[in-house]
Amino acid sequence: MLIETVDLKKTYRTGKVDVEALRGVDVRIRAGELVAIMGPSGCGKSTLMHLLGAMARATSGRVLMDGKDIAQMNDSERTAVRRTKLGFVFQKLNLLPTLTARANIEIARTIQGSEGDEKIDVYLADILKILKIDDKLDRRPSELSGGEQQRFAIARAVSHRPAIVLADEPTGALDSKNSEAVLQMFRELNRKFQQTILLVTHNPELAGYADRLIEMRDGLVVHDSGSIASAAVGN
């Protein structure tokens, strides 16, 4: 099991009101899966992604990655998890606007310590070809289309071969043509490199590109098309 949540809860306090964003989520993600987490706005999918992505601490419950509970780690431990095991793609403004696309990837590799790793260089060259952006490395984000920016964000997210890539509404700011292209590329990365990918979206069309669909509502998982439990029942 690559990552697993156990009775995961997250409560936000806004003024004097407690908002329960997650009310006990149990999810198990296997290595190499392409999973879509879906649900309407406010259902807790982004909060789940933040917790899976070691960006926030849980109120209670556990997020187990390699047997370690990242949900209760302190900031520097969570930072180390993000640096070594995770890659992120966000809805928009993913790239540092003042740097070229190449520098955006290089800064990630510097932070992640994979700078100068020849194996990664070869892998990255491959990724850039798959994403069809290998000829646009010296452009700044402002010189790239939204789809191209998103593809560079994907390249950066996978540049250090993370255990899992988390994408929060990656096609949210794209037109349908670019959305489709980006989703195809996620699938290709998943197929070719067995890259585990978790897509968070409210767009039902996106679900068609995933192997597994997890639906959320009101801070709970209401449907999981491929959970370990349902797989066992199916067998």
Binding site: G53, M55, D75, S76, T79, A80, R82, R83, T84, L86, F88, F90, N94, L95, L96, I107, A108, I111, Q112, R156
Partner: peptide, 9 residues
């Protein structure tokens, strides 16, 4: 973005 990439404080 830098923090999400794992940049330390």
């Amino acid at each position: 973005i830098l923090r999400s990439l794992g940049a330390s404080k």
